[in-house]
């Protein structure tokens, strides 16, 4: 899933301080799963804004709405009859959401309510970690199913480096050295010899370095 974290409420209040009719829009996709942008979080943010304005004795109308997904035009369309009633819209979807809303409703003022962090998974409830860098050419099968692009601080394809100690990366004792895990996994699978084979420098053409990406699948296009 795409993992995000809430923007500080103070920052959001500053963003919308000049607006009195605010629509908070959530998304039932990834941000619901990582507890940052679903219907529950929409209600918490809306309530926080109302409390703040009430405290300042200022008039405010905050409406709540959660879309099935903010990254699909058919669901974004759902707002067409209501969005015009509000002078500010806070999207608490990942960075895709506020952009899709801005593109579909060009005259509306759209504000991002979360900071999108990474593609990852839940280690346990409340703890998420990065697993994929979206490089466009998956190579995890060479490395025991673990990704050195996303999980090695240097994205090394021929590791580990000298900064690996006791299974931890030199950047922080809280960061595990993925190359330590890769070597252990390959030993367990009796495939250590495969790591001796030199991996040539990766082509980043399929990654973000090749510019903004677009994908067309003709079999799906109407």
């Amino acid at each position: 899933m795409i993992v995000a974290e809430p923007k500080p409420i103070k920052e959001l209040l500053e963003m919308v301080k000049d607006f009195n009719r605010i629509l908070v829009v959530g998304c039932k996709g990834c941000v619901t799963v990582c507890n940052v942008g679903g219907a529950k979080e929409v209600a918490i943010l809306a309530s926080s804004i109302r409390i703040s304005r009430k405290k300042m004795a200022q008039e405010i109308e905050v409406e709540e709405h959660t879309l099935e997904r903010q990254c699909d035009p058919e669901y974004v369309d759902e707002l067409k009859d209501m969005i015009g009633d509000y002078d500010a819209v806070i999207s608490i979807a990942c960075g895709v959401g506020p952009q899709f809303l801005s593109e579909r409703y060009p005259s509306s003022r759209i504000f991002p309510g979360v900071n999108t962090q990474f593609m990852g998974g839940a280690e346990e409830h409340g703890i998420w970690s990065e697993r994929c860098a979206g490089c466009g050419t998956c190579v995890v099968h060479y490395f025991g199913g673990l990704c050195p692009i996303a999980r090695c601080s240097k994205s090394l394809l021929n590791g580990p480096c000298g900064g690996s100690a006791n299974g931890k990366c030199e950047i922080s004792k809280d960061v595990e050295c993925i190359w330590d895990l890769i070597v252990r996994k390959m030993m367990e699978q009796d495939r250590l010899d495969e790591l001796i084979e030199f991996k040539p420098p990766k082509s980043w053409i399929t990654a973000r370095d090749g510019g903004p990406r677009r994908m067309i699948r003709e079999e799906l296009v109407k």
Binding site: I9, L13, S48, S52
Partner: peptide, 8 residues
């Protein structure tokens, strides 16, 4: 923490 952010 939320209340603090709201200056409450």
């Amino acid at each position: 923490k939320i209340l603090e952010e709201l200056s409450i």
